[in-house]
Design a protein around this nucleic acid. Sequence first.
DNA 1: TATGAATGAGCATTCATTCAT
DNA 2: CATGAATGAATGCTCATTCAT
Lengths: 206, 206, 206, 206
Amino acid sequence: MARKPQQQRSKATVDAIIQAGFICVAERGVGATTTRHIAETAGIGVGSLYEYFKDKEAVFDAMNQRMVEEVVGMLQAAAPAISRLPIGEAVKHILTLFGEFLQGNDQRYLKCARQAMNIDLKDYVGPISKLLTQIVMQHIMHHPEHMRLRRIPAMSYIFINAGIFSVVRHLSDPNPPISYEELTQGLADMVDHYVAQELLLTAPKA
Amino acid sequence: MARKPQQQRSKATVDAIIQAGFICVAERGVGATTTRHIAETAGIGVGSLYEYFKDKEAVFDAMNQRMVEEVVGMLQAAAPAISRLPIGEAVKHILTLFGEFLQGNDQRYLKCARQAMNIDLKDYVGPISKLLTQIVMQHIMHHPEHMRLRRIPAMSYIFINAGIFSVVRHLSDPNPPISYEELTQGLADMVDHYVAQELLLTAPKA
Amino acid sequence: MARKPQQQRSKATVDAIIQAGFICVAERGVGATTTRHIAETAGIGVGSLYEYFKDKEAVFDAMNQRMVEEVVGMLQAAAPAISRLPIGEAVKHILTLFGEFLQGNDQRYLKCARQAMNIDLKDYVGPISKLLTQIVMQHIMHHPEHMRLRRIPAMSYIFINAGIFSVVRHLSDPNPPISYEELTQGLADMVDHYVAQELLLTAPKA
Amino acid sequence: MARKPQQQRSKATVDAIIQAGFICVAERGVGATTTRHIAETAGIGVGSLYEYFKDKEAVFDAMNQRMVEEVVGMLQAAAPAISRLPIGEAVKHILTLFGEFLQGNDQRYLKCARQAMNIDLKDYVGPISKLLTQIVMQHIMHHPEHMRLRRIPAMSYIFINAGIFSVVRHLSDPNPPISYEELTQGLADMVDHYVAQELLLTAPKA
DNA sequence: TATGAATGAGCATTCATTCAT
DNA sequence: CATGAATGAATGCTCATTCAT
């Protein structure tokens, strides 16, 4: 039976297990990660893992939650600044933050992100998508002329997903045909040009 | 010892195994697909599976290869027509073909595509990306004014990947916030607007 | 290190553990009863259980002993009265007492009795058998004509065992084909008729 | 997935597993018998056990069934002869057969019988009880004067259960206070005297 | 060539017991 | 005394792979 960590030591152990989970999944993939590997990596006995987590799946869930929390925290902190940037730069800024996040921690988050994508796409990308949608809305608030854009929900969905997947895929590619700088610049231009063209097409006549 | 199928019967068995693989993975996911399931679904004994494939992984590889072949065949057949369409319509046409392919065969290809993404992304998306890059080039040939576009390789890479992942993710989402029609239209507009804006920005003065 | 409880509080804890043992075994069976369950039910920590009992088996032993003590106490209190009853009524009285004992305490003793039978039949049934044998002897003392009965030890053994097992089995059967009243009456008649017939067969001629 | 044994070799393996089950349970008890022990004793790999049995419980079920089948077969063969014997001798005959059965096979059936009693008393004793009830009825058919006996169902139930449990308990007792011969003779007398006394009490007057 | 019985390493999970606090 | 976190051996069970037929 998994108990709630109430003491300081317990909290540290839970953290160690989650970190071990990231390490193992990054090294061997989700499918090949066993409870024993996680426990060993965390420096504890197998039984102890079950003191804190109901089962293996619960460890993966906690990992997902942790990753989402970190991304969300990072984006929330940056949100106000982002709103004030021109659209292209805003996109670039977000992608740079996101890229740094995935590259950090020995690329473990990146490797886990790839694994998580097809396991549980709703919980994983879901909250992040939601926050990004909010950021888009805030950005529009600061740039009233963008309210003229058509089909904002659909295009937000497309740009957000395209951005997330492109970044994850690019960083995972050992031999990417373009640099990360080119990728972020390209995605930024993509959004920027789209917006510019829409504003042009919907411009009030004379 | 896996042998190359040299006879007609062998070829049929190999096909049956690959099809069974698609069925099993679609029904239960990669992780829960066992050699026994595949063999039973294919209507053969477990031992026979190993006559044609070195191990389970080889079956998955063959499935990947088969899927790629089909997509490539489909796109190659459509390539000439695509080249002649305006850019937005070209994108939409490709995405429609791709969507139909993933939806067909009882959505088995779609389900397998999601699973395959994080297993082996280089072999899976690689050849398709390559072909799409060629199609982009052919399209530019037919639309010489597009040669003025900057950073064509980078932007091709971005649009192609964004397109593939957006479509797979959207079709896999049981509750997508936008319709498939909206998705394809949005992606088409995205490319169309980008190109229009680029042409505008790079227009020779006067 | 299990210590002998020398203080009042210790005695109460030991009792709590034994009672918790009965509750757990009754609820889940011996095989599914864990030290954690017992400790939790007793309202103490797992570690504390080992302050009073060497290991899990020691708890079961104490439970056995406790149960035997209670049965023995109950029978000893009733022994004088039983001796004065006619044989059939004596049997019925004993069986009624025994039945009430097993039914009481939420049937916990009954459930534990069934479990205990095959674990440790010597310690469990032994002392009770011994006491019942004594009661038989006392009864014979009060009914001198019964001294004429042949093979008293063997028949005591048979009747006592038959009685105990029949009662435990009957009460454990969720769908018994006869009522408990019928069972006790039948066992009483069995003994009564046996004795009557023996007296008849061994009657002095003339 | 447990498969039905269709071939000769398979049948032999199933038998080996069941026999191994008897050996292990006799040696270590039900609770301490593991699938690995059974497989090793049967001279096969663990996995093979699961080719023929769904899980461990299925092995125990098969053991129960096997034991019941043998007892039932034995009793059915003896039933006609038993019907013709006087009641006391009939009882003794049955008990002798039963005792021999339990003693045979290295006392393994005896040891398993004790274990089985409290695990699954309905399936285990049930069919045997049913058959014994039939034998009682047949015996009465051959001895019409016994139809005068009162409460035949109740008394059959009592004598049958008393007999089974007394025998199992006696044979399991390493230090029984009476011999098996004394036990069977006592049980036979018990029934014989009961019947005689009943006939006496219910005799038509004058 | 085809088969499927046999294998056993490996997995997730449990639980009696210990020991530092 | 009391605790409960930590332990790891042990369990039931699965499944990729082999090999005798």
